[in-house]
Design a binder for these strands. Structure first.
Length: 590
RNA sequence: CGGGGUGUAGCUCAGCCUGGUAGAGCACUGUCUUCGGGAGGCAGGGGUCGUGAGUUCAAAUCUCGCCAUCCCGACCA
């Protein structure tokens, strides 16, 4: 039976907890299937446990962290005027058929099933359809607009490859908000407000983040920004200017074309290049810079079977940009060797832009070259001194490459730098994408039905737990930012079982801190030696630690240690409670 | 989905190649000593070796199927 403690709980906030009565399931060894720091530390610290691939249990201490994040998000969303709702995880197929996404939504990600009456349902990967259903039923007049509804709910996406623990789980916690408007200006205002709100939320979590221009992806819509937490383990690459606040996902970052070269065209010359297939081999063979060459990629077209895309030899194709080109098939597919040979008469490795009879799309940087080297469209031959106007027929200049470190910034200010980021938020202006398909209208001033404009604003709550750890850990474990920490303070009595003075002092400080509303964990576990307690405290990342031992009590002091700085101080037993109260208060004032 | 790896105690793994009594460390239970940086002794509990078939006198070990899981490539909060 658990000892009754009337002071244990104050409202919903657990201010006092004894480690002997709390599930602290720390592991000394790193689990074999965890690759990155946040995943390893969440498992080792006993915050989460895997139930199945990409599906996790949140243990008591992990849930506390999750709820701290939720609380910050709720406070800021409420402050922005948004209203919290809760929509079902299980969603009927009919609404998805109405929006046209039942058969389209990245087939596979959507987990479908049927009930006993053989009706189709799915587990919600997102809630545009449901919120639009709510809006069209409940909103009648333009006077009710704008509104912004949000929820914090479990989502399920049947990712082909769950990875990195909570950073890419199949089941995860997300805050999603949806706004409705009668004018573009109103949508823009809410969009801007959400931009500010997201910045405020991430700042309160003390994260180093960047809002960046983003692709809208499969959700659709126009304007879109992602919020990235900077971390080397991030899956996205973002480009940002050295001299301005321009920042964009590399998927979107515009590659500015260089000035065309002014060199006079020289006579072309075919040379034998036996066995040379790659740009690196070609550049080494000719002893030239890869930037003097071009590479020709053949992909499936939308109107024609094949399309040629030409890039400078040292550049990489950007898949997202390529798919947006009208000549290119909506899903980028590279042509097979056989298809290429049938149309061009040469294989990959010997292709060039000269004399092709398929649409020719040339990246800006490649188009600026003169007297460059390209494949000769004849196996094992390349051509020197190729020039666009003279040698290549009709072509269109496009932006289809990834930007690189040092490229000029598209806004003309400074140069681009690249960093990795974890996408924790994404805001969109959806426009009419769903409201039109699902006929969500209100009456305007003239009594005429108008389709509402929509915005949508997502934030990965459980992903944030991982992202925060990626930015806040050391070799010993997690270092929670104060507003996220599961407990503010941990008290470790040394030899409390032997020394009544130690046990009593620890208990006294514990009660004093709890009474002051500080979330405090007393590590009173029997038979766990001090070293193990110190290691656990550091692993689970409690910001403030108090060590009570005979060594200090003889002098009337206890030891205070700061998790982040490692700094320690001896504080008198009479002053320690107030000392901590002041520290925690200054944490929350930040 | 394509390619590769791995499934043996709660966790980390050995054993498999070369078939013959199922192991270690950590964790757990009891006990004694210990107790300011993941202690040590003694005693103990815990495994249908992922699963199904096949080969064999005999399968954790060899063969095949299936399942799970992880990693590398195309998607997303």
């Amino acid at each position: 039976m658990i000892e009754s403690d009337p002071h244990l709980i104050s409202g919903l906030k657990i201010t006092r907890m004894k480690a002997s009565r709390y599930t602290i399931s720390t592991l000394k060894e790193t689990p074999a299937d965890a690759e990155i720091a946040s995943h390893q530390l969440l498992i080792r610290g006993g915050f989460i446990r895997k139930l199945a691939s990409g599906i996790y249990n949140w243990m008591p201490i992990g849930l506390k962290v999750l709820q701290k994040i939720e609380r910050i998000i709720r406070e800021e969303m409420n402050a922005s005027g948004a209203q919290e709702v809760l929509m079902p995880v299980v969603q009927p197929a009919e609404l998805w058929e109405e929006s046209g996404r039942w058969g389209k939504y990245d087939d596979g990600l959507l987990l479908k099933f049927t009930d006993r009456h053989n009706r189709n349902f799915c587990l919600g990967p997102t809630h545009e359809e449901i919120i639009t259903e709510i809006a069209r039923n409940e909103l009648r007049s333009h006077k009710q607009l704008p509104v912004n509804y949000y929820q914090i709910q479990t989502k399920f996406r049947d990712e082909t490859r769950p990875r990195f623990g909570v950073l890419r789980a199949r089941e995860f916690m997300m805050k999603d908000a949806y706004s409705f408007h009668s004018s573009q200006q109103s949508l823009q205002e809410t969009y801007d407000l959400m931009h500010e709100t997201y910045s405020r939320i991430l700042s309160r979590m003390q994260l180093d983040f960047r809002p960046v221009l983003a692709d809208t992806g499969s959700i659709g819509g126009s304007a879109s920004m992602e919020f990235h937490v900077l971390a080397d383990s991030g899956e996205d690459i973002i480009a940002f200017s050295s001299d301005s606040d321009y920042a964009a996902n590399i998927e979107m970052a515009e590659a500015v074309g260089p000035e065309p070269e002014a060199t006079t065209p020289e006579a072309t010359e075919d040379i034998s290049t036996p066995g040379i297939k790659t740009i690196a081999e070609l550049a080494a063979f000719l002893k030239i810079d890869p930037a003097r060459t071009v590479k020709t990629l053949i992909v499936k077209g939308s109107e024609t079977p094949l399309v040629a895309i030409v890039l400078r030899g040292d550049h990489e194709m950007n898949k997202i940009k390529a798919e947006k080109l009208p000549e290119v098939a909506e899903t980028l597919i590279m042509a097979s060797e056989e298809e290429i040979r049938n149309v061009i008469g040469a294989g990959t490795g010997s292709l060039g832009p000269q004399g092709l009879n398929i649409p020719l799309l040339v990246d800006r940087a490649a188009a600026a070259l003169t007297n460059f080297v390209a494949g000769a469209n004849r196996d094992d031959f390349h051509t020197l001194n190729v020039n666009w106007e003279r040698d290549c027929g009709d072509f269109r200049v496009v932006d289809v490459r990834n930007v690189e470190e040092g490229d000029p910034s598209p806004d003309g200010k400074g140069t681009l730098r690249l960093k990795r980021g974890i996408e924790v938020g994404h805001i969109f202006q959806l426009g009419y994408r769903y409201s039109e398909a699902m006929n969500a209208t209100v009456l305007d001033e003239n009594g005429k039905a108008i389709t509402m404009l929509m915005g949508c604003y997502g934030m990965g709550v459980s992903r944030l737990v991982g992202a925060i750890i990626e930015q806040n850990h050391d070799e010993k474990g997690i270092i929670w930012p104060a507003p996220i920490a599961p407990f503010h303070c941990i008290i470790i009595p040394v030899n409390g079982h032997k020394s009544a003075a130690v046990a009593e002092t620890a208990e006294h400080i514990y009660k004093a801190l709890g009474a002051a509303g500080i979330e405090v964990l007393l590590d009173d576990r029997d038979g766990v030696r001090p070293g193990a307690k110190f290691a656990d405290a550091e692993l689970i990342g409690i910001p403030h630690r108090i060590v009570v031992g005979d060594r200090g009590l003889d002098k009337g002091v206890v030891e205070y240690v700061n998790r982040r700085s490692g700094e320690s101080a001896e504080i008198s037993t009479h002053q320690i409670a107030q000392y901590l109260i002041d520290l925690v208060k200054s944490d929350s004032d930040k």
